[in-house]
Simulated assay, not measured.
Amino acid sequence: MSPGDERNDGLFGGSGETRTRLPEGEGGGDDVYGVPRRSTRSGRTSSRGLVTVVGVVVLLLAAIAFANRGDGEDDTASADPKKPTTTSTSPTGKKPVDGKTAGIPSGFPRDEQGAQSAASNYAVSLVSADILKPTRRVEIVRSLFIADKVSELESTFNKTYSKEFLGKIGLNEKGEPAPGQTYVSRTVPVGTKTTSYSKDAATVEVWCTGAFGTAGEDTTNPVSNDWFTLTLKLRWADDDWKVESFRSKDGPAPVNGDNKISTADEIAKAIHEYGGFTYAR
C-alpha cells in the first residue's frame, strides 16, 4: 500500500473511516496506526431500555461488593475451592515507575510485569497527538525505540506525517490545529497480555480505547471513541524495555453505549483539564 493512496494506504481505515496510522514498526505491513479511526454509531444494536437494565445491574453489583467488604479480614479460606480467587487479568498492585524520559515513563523492571507496564505507557505515546508534532515526535521515537531502529523510523515517520498528510486531518506542518480547535488523541489502555517473554525480549498486546478527532467549530473530524489492540515487541536495552516493532488490529469493541454526546467545547475543556496517567500492570 502506498503512502499516497487516501483510502487504502494503511494511513486511513476503509469504509469511510478516518483513522490515521503509524508507519509500520517492522519496515512494512498493513495494519499499524497512529491515531485510530473515527468510529461510526450507525447499526447500533443497543437500546435505552437495555442500557437502563445494565445500569441497574451495575449498581446492584456495586452495592453487593460494598456490603461484602466486611472488616478487612482475608476470606480466601471460606471461598469455594472450585472457583478461582484471582484471574490473569487482575491488577498486581505494584506501583508505577517514578522515572521519565522525554516526559514518557521509563525505568521499568526487568520482568514480565515490567514489560506489560512499559507496553501500556508506550501505547499511550505512540497513539497520541504529540506523535504528529515533528519536534515532539523525535523525542518520542528516540525515547521508546531501540537505538538501531531510531534512524529508520524517524525517516519513515517524517515521510508519513508530511505537510500534505497533516493538512488532510486539519493540522498545520507543526501538527497544530486551526485557531479555536483542539486536536484530540487520548489513548487509554484497558488491559495487557504477554504472548511471549524472556529476560531479554517480550511481546505484549495492549487492548486500548480512547478519544480521537478534532473538537471545534466547523470540524470535519469530530471527536469519537475507538477500540483497538496494539502489539509491541520489546527488547531489554539500556537498562529498560524498548520497542523493537509494533502492529495493530481493530477491537475487541463492545456495543456502543447510549451516551449523551458532549459539545466540542466540553471535549476540548476536558482534554486540557484532565491529565493522563502512568500505567502499571
Rank of each mutant, 00 (worst) to 15 (best):
D9Y: 08
G276F: 09
S106W: 08
K149D: 05
E26T: 07
D80V: 05
T89G: 10
T40I: 01
S120L: 11
G276D: 04
P134C: 04
E266Y: 00
G28W: 11
N221Q: 13
E24N: 13
T187W: 10
A62H: 10
P179Y: 00
S196C: 06
G4T: 10
K269Y: 01
P36Y: 01
D240K: 02
R281N: 14
V57Y: 07
A147M: 09
T160V: 09
K249I: 02
F165Y: 13
L153Y: 03
T76E: 12
S185W: 04
W236H: 07
G55R: 05
R137T: 04
G43F: 12
L50T: 12
G167M: 09
I261T: 15
T85M: 09
S117R: 04
A67E: 09
Y183T: 00
D148G: 01
G10C: 05
P23T: 01
D239S: 13
A201T: 13
T86H: 11
F277S: 11
T231H: 00
A115R: 02
E73D: 15
V58W: 11
V255R: 11
S162C: 00
E73S: 15
L126D: 02
A115H: 09
D30H: 14
D31M: 13
F108A: 07
T76D: 13
S120T: 08
V138F: 08
A211F: 07
P81Q: 04
K163M: 06
G34F: 11
Y161R: 00
F228A: 08
K163C: 02
P105M: 05
T195I: 09
S2E: 14
I104M: 09
R235P: 00
L230K: 14
P36Q: 04
D80M: 04
S198Y: 05
K249T: 10
A62N: 12
S2L: 12
L234R: 08
V206Q: 06
S248L: 08
F66E: 07
N8E: 14
G107L: 07
I104Q: 07
S90N: 14
R48L: 15
E112C: 02
D148H: 09
Y33M: 15
R235T: 10
T85L: 09
T187E: 09
P189S: 07
G93C: 03
S262V: 12
P134S: 01
D258G: 12
G210P: 03
P81C: 06
P3S: 03
A268Q: 03
Y161M: 05
T45D: 11
L232I: 09
T214F: 04
L11H: 12
G175F: 05
R186W: 11
K193H: 11
M1G: 11
G14T: 14
D74Y: 03
R7I: 15
T87I: 08
N259R: 15
N221P: 00
R38D: 13
F157I: 08
A102M: 08
N172I: 01
